[in-house]
């Protein structure tokens, strides 16, 4: 089974037409890969579907805008993978999961 990072990288490569081998765990989705907000909607949809979650993009954006978080915490791909793993774990731990 591929890692969360690999799954995200594959989604980004396919959605944004970025060569897969240029997408690294340390890549910043915005600063390094040039992904804009519209492409990120597409990526978020694919990630939500693939992992059965709802990425809280608006909450993350608000935290960045309020200076409570940095973009690196959410948009460096290894960090994004970690956030997704946390969301999946929280979903699986929820009652009725």
């Amino acid at each position: 089974m591929s890692s969360t990072f690999d799954q995200i990288a594959n989604i980004i490569a396919e959605t944004c037409d970025i060569p897969r081998d240029t997408i690294k765990a340390e890549s910043h989705a915005i600063d390094d890969l040039g992904i804009d907000s519209l492409d990120f909607l597409d990526i978020a949809f694919a990630i939500d579907k693939a992992f059965g979650i709802k990425m809280p993009l608006e909450k993350w954006t608000q935290e960045v805008n309020d200076g409570k978080a940095t973009t690196e915490q959410y948009f460096v791909l290894q960090n994004l993978a970690d956030r997704i793993d946390e969301l999946v774990a929280a979903k699986n731990a929820a009652p009725g999961a």
Partner: peptide, 9 residues
Amino acid sequence: EHEGSGFAV
């Protein structure tokens, strides 16, 4: 199809 955070499909 999907209601995401700040978007819907």
